[in-house]
Amino acid sequence: MMVEMTDVETIGRRKYTVILGLALLFASLPLIMVYFVLIASSFANTMLTGASLGGIKLTIENWILFFQGKLTTTAGKIYETTDILKYILNTFIVAIGVAGICTLTSTLAGYAFSRIKFIGRSFLMQFLILLHAFPGVALIIAVYSIYVYTKLSMPQSFWTAYAFIYVIIARAALEVPMSIWIMKGFFDKIPWEIEWSAIVDGASRIRVWREIMLPLVKPGIAAVAIFSFLAGWEDLIYVLVFLPPTEKTLATYIESLLAEGSLEFIHLPVVAAAGTFYLLPTILFFIFARRLMLQTATGGIKA
C-alpha cells in the first residue's frame, strides 16, 4: 500500500530528475563558470578567461607570489612587496573577535528568550527581527561619529587597538539579533524536563545554563560561531571605514588593489590566488557543514 502511495505521489520523479536537472544545470552555468575561472586561474600562468585556451600551464607560482605579498609590479618582473601575512592575520583577528562576541551574547540571550518569562519578551523578540532588517548604511554614519568622537579622548598610541576593538564590536552587533534567534531555536528544542529536575534540586538558572544547557546546545553554538566567523571574515565596509589605511584585511586589500592599481601592474592570476585563499573558509564550511548551512543560511546573511 505504502509503495503504491509514494508511486502516485512521485509520479514521473525519474523523468523530471533528468529534464529539470539539465535545465538547472543550464541555469547554473554562469555560476559554475565564474567560480571555476577564479579557482583554476590561481593555478595557471595566465587568466583562464580567454576563448583560446592554448599555451596555458599549470603552476603554483601565483600562490608563492601571493604568500610573499608580491601582487603588483613596478616594471616587468620587479615586484612591490606588501605585508600580506599581516593582512591575513588582521582578517583572522576581526573574524575571531566577531565570532566570540556574537556567540557569547547570543548563547546568553537565546537562553533567556527561550526559557524565562519576563515583561517585554515578545516585544523584544520582534524588535530583534526589525533590527536585523534595519538598513546598515543608516547606522554606520552615527556609529562612525561616535567612534570619531570617542577616539579623540584616547592617547594616540592606543588608536589602532581602539579601531580594532571598535570594528569588532560594531560588526558583531549587526549579527547579534539573528544569532539570538538561531540560539533561541536550539534552546527551544531541548526538553523542559531536564531543566526542571535541576531547578527542583535547587540549582540556580545560571548554573543550569552553564552545566546542563550549554553541553546540550553545542550544535547551536557551532552554527552561530561559524556564521558570525564568516560574517567577520567577509566584512568589507566596517573594516574599510574604521581601520586605518595601513591595517588592511583581505577584503580591503583586494578592493584597493583593483580600485587604485592599473592593470599593467597587477598580475591577475595572483589576485585570483588571493581571492581563492579568501574563499577557503567558505569552501571548507560547504564541505563539512552542508546540512547546517541549508538549515540556517537564510538567517545569517541578507542580500
Binding site: L230, M293, A303
Partner: peptide, 8 residues
C-alpha cells in the same frame, strides 16, 4: 554566492 565574501 550568499556565503562567498563580498570582495571575492
Amino acid at each position: 554566492p550568499r556565503m562567498t565574501p563580498v570582495a571575492v
